[in-house]
Amino acid sequence: MENVLSILFCLSLFYLSVTSRVKAYVTVLQMQGLLLTVLLVLPFVKHFSLYALILPTTLFIIKVVFIPRYINKIIRDLDIKRVIEPTIQQFTFLLLVIFSMTIIFIASNILSKSTDIETIPFASGFSAVVVGILVIIFRKKLILHVAGFLVLENGIFLFGIAVASELPVMIEIGMLLDVFVVVFLMGIALNRISSTLSGFEVTALGRLKD
């Protein structure tokens, strides 16, 4: 079951690399949040404990409900264009993603022989980290940087599930808080930037250099 969900996660990454609509990013983020929540709840189907539900609940609230809404609100308020205006062709980007994912999967497969990691969640998590970084590198829009960062963070989450299922809850909650704050700050920053600079692209930020 975990593997199926992880593969779904990977598919969402592919969708992310070919879509050209900003809205789609938000939907993907929402879906990934849902997948992660399910992944976290899965082990507790057999041994139910109320305490263990804290993390999935928080995750759900933050990643599925709050952050997508917030980003949508920013897009609406600031009237950000709906197309993503990529710096390289979508197809090239897809190739890049496929290439890196292949290498990661092969590497994880080899790694799994010597260590006790679960190949597919591990590799998916790693891929998400890389795709997140690639999104940040090859997209100009600041709002997509936020999305890229969130994808990266989801990857780390998945990674945590794959490497050690008993990563302390406090650390995961701490990470969630971290993400929450970062997105919040980025939103504020975008609001401020929009009032001083006209564009929402990182290239415009270069002018702020002292």
């Binding site: 590497a107 890389v130 970084i133 690639l134 940040i136 590198i137 090859f138 940087h145 990182v202 290239t203 930020l205 270069g206 002018r207 250099k209």
Partner: peptide
């Protein structure tokens, strides 16, 4: 001046470390 270059550097370093 562009943050994307720095992110790219990070990716390169991560790759090398990996």
């Amino acid at each position: 001046t562009d943050i994307r270059y720095y992110i790219a550097f990070i990716l390169v370093i991560i790759t090398i470390y990996s």
